[in-house]
Design a protein around this nucleic acid. Structure first.
Length: 714
DNA sequence: ATAGGGTTAG
């Protein structure tokens, strides 16, 4: 009996040792082994403890690992190094550093094994001071010339964006290696210093070091980073020509460039190559393929790649959602997202963010707000990409409270200095009618890029504040930021809102003369609106005729709207004729023309235009506006019939009457303000000196004392 | 036991 027990015990011990020596031990096996070691008194032996440490660390059970370390009577550098390595491997950088300093305070000297791990823990801009300190410790310990330590230091300087220091260090290295040089190449490349990356690449070659695939991939990534997609593809081809076999990384580095250039032919070729190379199961390659097909608008290939995958990978799922969303398939994207969630997938911040972006870009604003809440309930923390994806949804439906909540969130989480967050906040406040809020955000930004400047100008344009928009434009240039074509679109539309014809003309001409920016169709559309609103309809028309390209529906639409404001029948007919060809299914065009006729008392022609619309099946019961009908020489009863079907927007307008009279501001989402609404709201604003803001898609009407800022006469 | 590269959200 005793012999049997002993035999069993021996067997058990054997298992324990085997478990300790394998790296695949499950967590419960490790815990059993741990219990056994404690029971048998082996826990004082450093080799068992170290093994336990590394097993717990590899399972990321750091609390257990810490306990083991605490129980070691005389920990050596090996005990610490195991845990420090694991902490930096799993990105618990602060813990790794804390442990390193604890080791030093135990009087344990670092060796060339623990230093690289400690240095790796400093590989991030925020830990650069600590990195310098560890570098100092390495020098004091006489280990600064160790090749592993030097490689780690090079890597640390690169990750801290101190590329020059890294380069200097590499130049002094007695045994430079391909790994460190490749790291420098891709370090330069990721920062967009493509020529420096190429320089380092050649320097490496001159040192007699053969570049490997990592070096090549670094260069490709660099071109992508700086938006130089064709060059990225050229490097890929050159690599191929020189006999380097591209690996999964090369493929996933080059595919985004192929997608951004929408080069479908090349995408197909690379897909074939992937299959030939036998790397079609690499999850990054699959994600990159899905993304590429999505960018090339090949939705069937996209789903095919996903379906053939045979297993669920989060990156691929996210790429699928993004691909569907990019191609306007918002409902499908939502469906697969819900499916993934139902299947218990561990959706990450990218998954949620891309779904929110999909909703806010496809008119599902309420859904976007719901998803934001849902993601937080699911325990996923929104980041500085999530906020700029969410904010447009708040702006679209003028959900100021939600927008403010997101603003507060970004302040608390320290992401308000991000240029994307800032630009999105500026846009959100402007769309919610709070242009002062936009300006407040703008003024508080520590760094601004072109998008920020354009966002605040677009805000002022939306609010018809041309003076402020011009001030920003001047400020922008004196701060050294060059305007682009969007800056001019914002500026010109601000002038057209304010009727500043001369200023508009001046800036339109200065665009190509002083800034080297050729006028695009949207600039001409702004000019046509500008001239049209000012009543200079013939000039607007001659501008259209002088345009260096075919005028599109926006141009003719701008002219027709102006013709309606001034009831210019002959030009209105010209514009309408073009529009009926360009966009036959836009009911607004028929109504505008019909109203021009009605204003001239030509009720026959007016009815004809409306019949044409009805025949297209566009509106069942289009009524006339009260502005026209009130002057028609018919019985009151018939007037009522003519007006029938034109009540929806009026109801909204009259709804304003039911709001509390003290309320100074109302914002109605995306209401196309027709003449009747305009007249009614103007009338309401004359009571009690009320101020009313209404957003008409992308411009505001500011009503006060019976006058509207837009100057239209209704 | 120590060192490098890729995909997906603005």
């Amino acid at each position: 009996m005793a012999r049997q027990a002993l035999h069993l015990f021996d067997g058990f011990q054997h298992t324990i040792l085997r478990c300790l020596n394998s790296n695949t031990a499950s967590l419960s096996q490790v815990r059993q082994a741990h219990a056994h070691i404690l029971k048998t008194g082996l826990s004082n032996e450093i080799r068992f403890n170290s093994k336990l440490l590394s097993l717990y660390a590899n399972h990321q059970c750091f609390a257990d690992a810490d306990l083991v370390l605490d129980s070691v009577p005389e920990p050596n550098v090996f005990s610490f190094s195991t845990l420090i390595y694991a902490y930096s491997k799993f990105s618990h950088l602060n813990h790794a550093l804390r442990l390193f300093s604890r080791m030093l305070s135990h009087g344990i000297f670092p060796d060339s094994y623990v230093l690289p791990s400690a240095i790796k823990a400093c590989a991030g801009p925020s830990a650069f001071r600590a990195g310098r300190q560890v570098h100092g410790i390495a020098s004091v310990s006489g280990l600064a010339s160790d090749s592993f330590v030097q490689s780690a230091l090079v890597h640390m300087y690169i990750k801290c964006n101190h590329l020059t220091d890294a380069h200097k260090l590499l130049d002094t290295m007695p045994e430079p290696d391909v790994v460190s040089w490749s790291a420098l190449v891709s370090g330069y490349a990721r920062q967009g210093y493509v020529s420096k990356a190429k320089g380092a690449f050649h320097e490496m070659e001159n040192l007699g070091i053969e570049p490997n695939s990592v070096s090549w991939n670094g260069i490709i990534a660099g071109f992508n980073q700086s938006g130089r997609y064709s060059e990225a593809i050229m490097m890929f081809q050159e690599m191929h020509l020189l006999g380097f076999k591209p690996d999964g990384t090369s493929i996933s580095s080059v595919l985004p460039a192929v997608g951004d250039l929408e080069n479908f032919e090349m995408g197909i070729q690379i897909h074939g190559y992937v299959i030939k190379l036998g790397i079609g199961m690499d999850k990054c390659v699959i994600s990159a393929l899905i993304d590429m097909y999505g960018k090339c608008a090949c939705t069937s290939e996209l789903s095919q790649v996903f379906d053939e995958m045979g297993y669920l990978d989060l990156g691929a799922c996210n790429a699928l959602v993004a691909g569907l969303s990019r191609n306007g398939l918002a409902d499908e994207a939502l469906m697969v997202f819900r499916q993934f969630k139902g299947q218990g997938m561990d959706l990450n911040v990218v998954s949620w963010t891309s779904m929110i972006a999909c909703c806010s870009q496809n008119g599902k604003d309420m859904e976007a707000l719901d998803l934001f809440r849902e993601m937080q309930i699911a325990g996923v923390k929104p980041n500085s990409v999530t906020i700029p994806c969410l904010l447009p949804a708040c702006g679209n439906i003028a959900a100021l409270l939600h927008g403010k909540a997101a603003h507060g969130f970004s302040l608390r989480r320290g992401m308000s200095d991000d240029v994307y967050v800032g630009s999105a906040l500026i846009d959100m406040y402007a769309k919610c009618g709070k242009i002062q809020g936009s300006r407040y955000c703008f003024d508080g930004m520590p760094n601004r890029n072109l998008v920020c400047w354009n966002a605040i100008m677009a805000g002022y344009a939306m609010h018809g504040k041309a003076k402020e928009a011009t001030e920003i434009f001047d400020l922008m240039q004196s701060s050294g930021q060059k305007p682009d074509f969007i800056s001019f679109t914002c500026l010109l539309s601000a002038f057209s809102q304010s009727g500043l014809t001369e200023e508009g003309r001046y800036y339109f001409n200065s665009m190509s003369r002083e800034h080297g920016i050729e006028a695009r169709v949207e600039h001409y559309a702004c000019m046509v609106t500008l001239l049209g609103r000012a009543g200079k309809l013939d000039e607007a028309y001659s501008m259209i005729k002088k345009m260096p390209f075919m005028p599109d529906a926006c141009i003719w639409g701008a002219l027709l709207s102006s013709c309606r404001v001034y009831n210019n029948m002959s030009l209105g007919e010209v514009a309408a004729k073009k529009l009926f060809e360009l966009e036959p299914r836009n009911p607004g065009n028929y109504i505008l023309l019909s109203n021009i006729y009605a204003s001239k008392g030509k009720w026959n022609e007016a009815d004809k235009a409306r019949d044409k619309m009805k025949k297209m099946g566009l509106r069942k019961n289009p009524g006339y506006s009260w502005i026209e009908v009130k002057n028609k020489d018919v019985e009151e009863q018939e007037k009522e019939q003519i007006l029938c079907g034109h009540s929806e927007k009026l109801a909204v307008a009259f709804g304003l009457l039911n709001t509390c009279p003290g309320t100074p501001l109302r914002v109605i989402k995306n209401l196309r303000i027709c003449g009747d609404c305009h007249a009614v709201i103007k009338f309401i604003s004359s009571f009690e000196g009320r101020e009313i803001f209404v957003r008409d898609t992308n411009r505001f009407h500011h009503f006060k004392d019976g006058v509207c800022s837009c100057g239209d006469h209704w």
